[in-house]
Design a protein around this nucleic acid. Structure first.
Lengths: 121, 121
DNA sequence: TCCGGATATATCCATTCTTGATACATAATT
DNA sequence: AATTATGTATCAAGAATGGATATATCCGGA
């Protein structure tokens, strides 16, 4: 079980939102599901991050009332805060993916067993 | 110019040391060189990390006197602290590489455009 | 009907991490 | 003589981390 740090959390959350609007709890479940249970993003990591994304204008938000089945229309049920990727958010996701790919290839230069550094002459 | 965080720093420093013993300043230069100038690990990131690796028993250390060209043998020149990967360090490097590869493939499930999540039935 | 687990959002806070700045000293270069 | 490079190391302000806590509703089973 890998608890995601902010960098990876951002990439993964934006990726999930690229599939369509969602909300904190569902995003958390989606991350666990799509990583086959390997990734975990807890509430204390999720909500501050989501707030940050909102402040940065990468997502737009709206509240939705969650009605219980056959519930009294007057009663105020649970609330969900929906997050929708903005155009700016889409661009930022592309940048994050690009940065991630570069990091990958650079790390590979250290980790892959090619050993082509130093004077090969 | 990407300044490495602790996780990546650890992987990269252990990788550099896998090629043979080195010391802080040289490791820093090696990281810049092998990443073609993209990675930076500053002194304030390097030395605390090296100390940590030493405490964890992943590296062994020794001091060496750096003699100036044709210097008075009596004068005490600069000192270098050498770091040598221990057997435990080698194992830890292997684990870090493994963890990195797993992280890569898991992140790819979010980032690559295959979109095979959700109910495809 | 009571209770536990799931749903849903959010903050608290002690510990750890980050990183530019600072400190100190020698060596090489201009 | 001044600057840059080599070399190790700490300081401290701010940011990040993550288990615990708080609050509240929904649902199924005993």
């Amino acid at each position: 079980m890998i608890t995601l740090k902010q960098d990876h959390s951002t990439l993964v959350v934006l990726s999930v939102l690229a599939d369509g609007p969602s909300y904190g709890y569902a995003i958390s479940k989606a991350i666990a599901a799509r990583s086959e249970g390997h990734f975990k993003l807890t509430a204390s990591g999720m909500y501050p991050l989501l707030t940050k994304l909102e402040k940065q204008g990468l997502v737009t938000t709206s509240w939705e009332e969650v009605k219980a089945e056959g519930a009294d229309p007057e009663s105020s049920g649970r609330k969900r805060k929906w997050y929708d990727l903005s155009p700016k958010g889409h661009k930022q996701l592309a940048k994050h993916i690009e940065a991630h790919r570069q990091m990958q290839s650079l790390i590979d230069a250290f980790v892959s067993p090619t050993t082509t550094h130093g004077t090969t002459a």
